[in-house]
Nucleic acid binder design. Structure first.
Lengths: 239, 239
DNA sequence: GCTAGTTTCAAACAAGTGTTTGAAAAACGT
DNA sequence: ACGTTTTTCAAACACTTGTTTGAAACTAGC
């Protein structure tokens, strides 16, 4: 008991000080889920890192799955709200003219960037967590994200369809899928960069630089002319 | 012994039946790892599905991690060999002229397509497993894939650098990273498609169609002109 | 100061984990 | 046919998992 008394008296002087139990669990869970994934992260690991009792996780969040969803909701919900608001702003500013792909992509990326920049540490962690959650096979994660993204995706598909009127709607859906994939994969895989390019360590974690290079790449892909049937078998001929 | 004699005589006629224990474990593990991920798949689940004894997994593969690596190696190794061979063929055919981005992408995609087409079922499963493994945070998986991809990546980076001589090497590395990301994400996330587009179920699993649409998209991104400094802050201005 | 409601805590629960063991069975070489 | 190696099997091992429990500590409201 002497130990716990010491810890309590020391804690306010510390850096990350004195959030309530619920926030401390969310913060620790965010980092650990990002680092190890959902299945490989135990509640004991989380509650120990958060310096709270094991039972507190179930008391405040119900179950491990609900805790994971709470971690995602806390930042994903505002970010997607931002995205839709930004898209609305652009659309009203453009009047009845269609937006360009660049502008639409900006509306997707800027809220993500804001998250990566604003929070001192949590933001970057969250983006990586989100990218990895997008590739997680667990059904409850996929269903949760589907529901969470549904409205935003519908808005952006409509915007891209207006920006690319010469493309069939189905092709627009495909390309939007590629954009979302490249974005989430890029945000998730800082480690994978080391395989492909050898950058300075300071640059590797620079999400801003990353997205500034990704956005034009994707815009060019979106604008590319539709490959017709005769072009198609140029791609995958038998060798 | 009578049973095994019968089974052996039947094997050539039947489609799937009666592989040896090692292959049965690999097949079951491939499917289950793909479906649930590494951590969420237990050895008991695998050995039960393979109809072998639990201890057989450790006997033949040593540990769960080594089993996972064996599942990946079995098909990834030949696929990457194919990719490099194909690239070599194209390069010798082109003489000292640089290859186009389309041709280089073909050399990446065709071996993946061959895998998806040839094996009746295992091929598609494996591509999805591979895409998911690429996003898995487990260190042993990331290290394994880094090592497994290193040579192929180096070859393709050099090829793209020759195809895009106007781009800085660093930009080429980024774009190669985006290509790999979009490819692995696309192969991994059949489920995610349902969020973005509502296709006929038969089309959703058609990897060939998927890659035929992805390849031109990526080629356009690769060929896009480098965004210069003045264009750059067009993208992410403060709102 | 006392009560009612909320939050914390140590301990236990039942179930599942990867791995090991030692004996039985099968397969193989000669 | 026999001795040796390889493979299978049921059982157990030591440990971790998410969740629950019931008492203790704390925090208002009056």
């Amino acid at each position: 008991m002497a130990i716990s008394a010491i810890q309590k008296s020391v804690r306010p002087a510390d850096a990350v000080v004195e959030l309530d139990t619920k926030s401390r669990i969310l913060d620790a869970a965010e980092e650990l889920f990002m680092e190890h994934g959902f299945e490989a992260t135990s509640l004991r690991l989380i509650t120990t890192a958060a310096a709270v009792n094991l039972a507190a996780a179930n008391y405040h969040f119900g179950s491990k799955e609900e805790l994971f969803q709470a971690v995602l909701t806390r930042r994903l919900d505002p970010m997607n709200q931002d995205r839709m608001q930004l898209l609305t702003n652009y659309e009203t500013a453009a009047g009845n003219k269609a937006l360009t792909c660049e502008v639409i992509i900006s509306a997707m990326f800027i809220p993500a960037l804001k998250l990566a920049r604003d929070q001192s540490q949590g933001g970057k962690n969250f983006l990586r967590l989100l990218g990895r959650a997008y590739a997680d096979p667990a059904p409850f994660i996929r269903e949760f994200l589907s529901h969470q993204y549904a409205e935003m995706i519908a808005r952006y598909r409509a915007a891209f369809a207006r920006a690319l009127p010469h493309l069939p709607r189905e092709e627009v859906s495909w390309r939007l899928h590629f954009v979302m994939g490249a974005l989430s994969y890029t945000l998730a895989g800082t480690d994978a960069l080391k395989v492909i390019a050898q950058f300075h360590p300071t640059e590797v974690n620079n999400d801003e630089l990353l997205l500034k290079r990704l956005a034009p790449f994707l815009a060019a892909g979106l604008r590319s002319p539709m490959a017709n049937a005769t072009d198609a078998h140029q791609w995958f001929q038998e060798t």
